[in-house]
Design a protein around this nucleic acid. Structure first.
Lengths: 229, 229
DNA sequence: GGAAAAATACTCCGTTCGGGTGATTTATTA
DNA sequence: TAATAAATCACCCGAACGGAGTATTTTTCC
């Protein structure tokens, strides 16, 4: 893992709705010459706007993203960002050690996950690490991650494949998603899988929710991109 | 996550076949008052023997375990140990960042995974972290972990060339097809490319004709399959 | 210069989609 | 056993879509 651009300053952005915290963080990061703060935002919307409007030379390398945000969440924002700007590393920054959101963060493409009580120079080294191909996470979060990866050794080792399905799609949903990818309409899918069109529709709605999309085309693209089929 | 026994020394064991490295490590850890080295071993077998024969008050809290060992491997040793002594935390200690063994280590119950070039005081803080419920891992390993939980992205492969013209799509059509693939609606596309929605629609109709499809989803699938974008 | 292809714009019409809501039934798991 | 998740079916509504047709302007190229 090599550093992406050894000599250069790391361009950092902060997304944090809590004014005092954001300002404090801004101030602290200001002491580090190796960092360049390109913008701060107090909401996901503002962040997206900022990034989309950034000049190439002001595009952040890393974003410190609060999870709890007014309006669209940090997770959603991350998802949106990674769709368009895959090269930006995003470190989730939160007060909670929340399994669910940790998992979601990873799903949508966050690279690191730090707690807000992390010391400032650890935050700074995290920013560097992430640019060098690492994933800064606190040890306690690492343990959660490890639990996710390791088998819940509950008997039953007969199950062959762990079958890592991105987006947590249920078997029924995957079956239907495949049909959607084939360009079929709800009615056609219903006939194919012997279900009512209403059911098919419901499944598709749930698929959209899980995949964060709102059209067949987007779902197909994502599914193919992530090798779900 | 609370410390298991706040005030007490952490009982540490080292399993490492490389004599010089083991001795050096022993020496270095000796400088830390908060640690108590209960034993060292140069093989998995010795380690198991040591643990099984340990007095309760000499039972290690944490074992630094080399993966590459003569005889039974560190992974196998870890497995054996965790069978009987689940409360012992084991930190794998290795020179290699090996995906396969990282994964295996976690499967058999290792709590942490450090590279041997880790600074000594980081090793020591790792020993503490592990006792406090954390999982010390280096950022680069964390990223591998995260990749495991997130996307089993299929890399590689057929780096085939553009070859012939995919379909006979005109530049304008391709431009619009790209937007379709992004999941945009006709109206959104119109705004994006500064055209009337009617025009966009016409283009899409023509695209369908050329591609022999009749829905966005099908067009997206075909386009991605054929690498048109 | 002139034919052909591409790009642009619009209308009508019936179908499909996507979002919201709500309900029942069956696992599964705590 | 109780709570939760998955799967099933249903309805309303407005927006979007897809098909067929027509037509003008630009570009391209022989």
């Amino acid at each position: 893992m090599e550093s992406k651009e050894p000599g250069k300053k790391i361009r950092v952005a902060i997304v944090e709705d809590h004014d005092i915290f954001r300002k404090r963080l801004t101030e602290l990061l200001g002491f580090y010459d190796e960092l360049e703060l390109v913008f701060t935002a107090d909401s996901g919307e503002t962040c997206l706007k900022q990034v989309f409007e950034s000049e190439p030379e002001k595009m952040p390398d890393v974003i410190l993203m609060d999870i709890e945000l007014p309006g669209i969440s940090g997770i959603e924002t991350t998802f949106q960002l990674k769709e368009k700007f895959e090269e930006i590393d995003i470190i989730m920054f939160t007060v909670f050690e929340d399994d669910e959101r940790l998992f979601e963060s990873i799903q949508v493409g966050a690279t690191g996950y730090l707690l807000k009580d992390t010391a400032i120079d650890e935050v700074v080294s995290s920013l560097k690490e992430v640019r060098e191909g690492g994933s800064p996470i606190t040890p306690s979060i690492a343990r959660k991650l490890i639990r996710m990866v390791s088998k819940p050794k509950k008997e039953n080792s007969s199950k062959s494949e762990p079958e890592v399905v991105p987006f947590d799609l249920s078997p029924a949903e995957i079956r239907i998603l495949e049909q959607v990818i084939d360009g079929k309409s709800n009615k056609e899918i219903a006939e194919e899988v012997f279900l009512s069109p209403w059911t098919v529709k419901t499944h598709i709605k749930n698929i959209y929710k899980k995949m964060h999309v709102n059209s067949r085309a987007a779902a197909v693209r994502l599914a193919l991109k992530r090798d779900i089929v």
